[in-house]
Structures are given as C-alpha cells and as structure tokens.
C-alpha cells in the first residue's frame, strides 16, 4: 500500500503558540518549541517529523493559517 509521507512548514513569526494544531495532530508530530518567536510565543514545529502523513488536520484548524502542508506518496 502506498504510504503517505508529509511535512509541514510553520510560519514561525505568525504562529501564536495556541497549541490547537498540536492536540489535533493524529500522529503526534507537532510539538511546541523551547525558544520563542519575535512576539514571545512558543511556536509549533515538527517534533517527530517521521510521523507526519500530511493529513492537513493541523493546517485546517490553525486559527492563524500559519501551516503549509506537503505530501508525497511512496
């Protein structure tokens, strides 16, 4: 069966660190960064990039629309 491999790109400076993407990620890919962005928020990043399937769930719930999703099938 073809396996989907995904990756997300977070617009770090626009991210407000609300964590809505983190709890809605079905594969526990997303974590919050230790460091903060220019506004002082702990932004989202791919903590476990090997888990990502590119399902776009994080991007559709992100209130600020900071996530871009990429997906390839292998």
């Amino acid at each position: 069966m073809a396996k989907a491999i995904g990756a997300i790109v977070v617009d770090v400076e626009r991210c407000k660190g609300c964590q809505v993407c983190r709890v809605n990620c079905p594969t526990m890919t997303i974590g919050m960064a230790e460091e903060v962005n220019g506004k002082g928020y702990h932004y989202a990043y791919m903590e476990n990039p090997e888990n990502c399937t590119g399902c776009t769930n994080c991007a559709v719930v992100c209130p600020d629309g900071v996530i871009t999703v990429y997906r390839v099938k292998q």
Binding site: G6, D64, G65, I67
Partner: peptide, 29 residues
C-alpha cells in the same frame, strides 16, 4: 518533500498578509 508540486494545503491568498488581531486559539481566524 517540501517542494511546490507536493503542496497540499496553504493559507489562501485571499487572506491578506496582515497578522490577525485575535487572541491565540480564537475561532475567528
């Protein structure tokens, strides 16, 4: 993976570049 042809979701260009004034996690955005 991160290439133009693999992109499956991006913020619509009909939203302007302005940063939303809403609180973090607000459904308005």
């Amino acid at each position: 993976i991160i290439k133009e042809e693999n992109q499956v979701y991006r913020r619509t260009p009909l939203m302007t570049e302005a940063t939303l004034s809403y609180c973090p996690g607000c459904g308005h955005g």
